[in-house]
């Protein structure tokens, strides 16, 4: 990277460290932090959308729709932790390939499950075996995002469902008295007011989501955990210009600090957001704000 790094063996101390920390592989490691942030940036809105859909379904007047919403919430919340992550990635992958197989290869006459194998025709493979490397990587990442969104969506649905019920009934009745249709009441009264009730639950969920990101490693994505194990392992002079002992402990210490800083910053930001959302609400905190200002 830097010009002075052409002969690392001659360097020592800080200069060696500066060169070591800017090798190509370390750049990939720093990029992996971007992967984590990207995952959060995509998953959080996606999970919120799943959650909103689930909550609206669960509130529906039509019984089958309401069962669907409540069933989604109950099943995903009831089944234990990472088993879901391991299960969903294989299950979703097989579901997609199965659907493509049905659509693309109608002439196929062999069974798809042959004993211990799952066999679909070549055109139905996802991603196609001829696809470039980046397609394979982003397919894996996409599956991971979908899994996270489904699982956290159920939790968000539960929070939003509760928040919608927490909006004071008098507010809804007032809206009806003003002649708003149910749709208008939902859009103008219920949804804007529910966030203040949902935020404590959602911020809790956000913290859990941050702390779930290392599980990307289990889903086969080259994330920060992968790179920390890769870079930290003992390096001998035959294979690298920067030989060192087993430094994995220090790499994981860095990850630990990264997550601590991230959760701390989130805590502060969410507290500020809560103050803003409370403004003008018919809650104890909103009343306290009004009195403080007056």
């Amino acid at each position: 990277m830097l010009g002075s790094c052409s002969d690392p063996a001659a360097l020592d101390g800080l200069a060696w460290l500066a060169c070591y920390l800017t090798t190509g592989k370390h750049m990939a490691f720093y990029g992996a932090f971007g992967t984590v942030l990207l995952l959060l940036a995509i998953t959080a809105p996606a999970a919120l959308a799943f959650g909103f859909g689930g909550a609206v379904l669960a509130r529906s007047q039509i019984a089958p729709l309401s069962w669907l919403g409540k069933g989604y919430i109950a099943i995903v919340r009831g089944v234990p932790d990472i088993a879901f992550f391991l299960f969903f990635v294989i299950a979703l992958d097989q579901a997609f390939e199965f659907l493509r197989h049905k659509a693309l290869c109608p002439g196929w006459n062999q069974p798809i499950w042959q004993g211990n194998d799952f066999v679909v025709c070549n055109e139905a493979k996802l991603p196609l075996s001829s696809a470039p490397q980046w397609v394979h990587e982003s397919y894996g990442f996409g599956l991971a995002v979908l899994t996270f969104a489904i699982v956290f969506g159920a939790f968000a649905a539960n929070v939003l469902f509760g928040a919608m019920r927490a909006v004071p009934h008098a507010q809804i009745e007032t809206a009806e008295a003003y002649g708003m249709t149910p749709r208008q009441t939902f859009r103008r009264i219920l949804v804007p007011q529910m966030w203040v009730y949902a935020l404590p639950g959602l911020s809790n969920l956000w913290m859990v989501l941050i702390k779930a990101t290392p599980l990307l490693f289990l889903l086969g994505v080259e994330d920060i955990v992968y790179w920390a194990r890769e870079l930290g392992g003992t390096k001998t002079p035959q294979f690298t210009d920067y030989p060192h002992g087993d430094w994995r402990m220090w790499y994981f210490l860095a990850l630990l600090v990264f997550y601590l800083a991230f959760t701390r910053v989130s805590e502060i930001a969410l507290a500020r957001l809560m103050t803003r959302l409370t403004h003008g609400q018919a809650t104890v905190a909103g009343e306290a704000q009004r009195k403080a200002a007056a």
Binding site: I210, L215, M249, L253, L255, L256, T263, R264
Partner: peptide
């Protein structure tokens, strides 16, 4: 509480 258990195990 601020860091993932997964990373704590590794560390």
């Amino acid at each position: 509480r601020g860091s993932p258990l997964f990373i704590q195990f590794f560390f």
